[in-house]
Amino acid sequence: MTEKKNNNSGGISRREFLKDAGLLVGGSAIGSTVLLAACGGDTETVTEKVTTTVTGAGETITKTVTNEVTKTVTADGTAPSTGLKEITLTINGHKTTLAVDPGWDLKHLLHDRLGCIGVKDMCGGVGACGACCVIIDGKAVLSCMTLAVECDGKTIENSEGIAASNHPIVDAFITNNAFQCGYCAPGFVVSAKALLDQNPNPTDDEIIEALKGNLCRCTSYPRMVPAVRTASQQLGGSE
């Protein structure tokens, strides 16, 4: 079989995309390592400095990573197809402008392009599991069912942002042992945080209601309601 050496990255210009490569997400700088990784590429090599803030530990590690960078030309040497749209959105408190393909769903943008790995994929994008949910303008919705291009001007928060802001729901999930393998946990944290934002003192039924769209294969369900209750108490919501 033929090995291919073309240099295009799925119709997106890397440089165009990287115009805001220092974007901070969830307290972790989404350095261009991640962006580059997502885009592939193999012709020229540059050295880039990537800053990572480790949330929770409170320390900043700065490391330098050598990355490969692709020139943005298609196989026949023409400019890549345009069709990218520029959007401005606020991710975990950081406002940024990005060029996105309309075909990208928000999960793809956050997870694969920006390295927000708290946005998990459990059901393969059929809207059945809640693992990829994020808070958009105050509502917990599925990022796999949201087009990135339609998020222009919106405010987005995911589990990493919630953790970075020291919201008590994260600690409550840990101290209540409300997960086992942990793959679904970020989705539950997001759903619960959205609930507490709107209703700091929810009843058990309201908690169940808010978490009902999230699936957990380890079935840690029995401890999730108490976890949200704990967080609610810490927020001072409970009398």
Binding site: T33, G40, G41, H111, I117, K120, S159, E160, F179, P186
Partner: peptide, 17 residues
């Protein structure tokens, strides 16, 4: 795990991958 920063295989991203 709770913050979503635990890396599962699907989350693996290395340069040039």
């Amino acid at each position: 795990k709770a913050s979503g920063r635990a890396i599962f295989p699907r989350d693996t991203i290395v340069p040039g991958m």
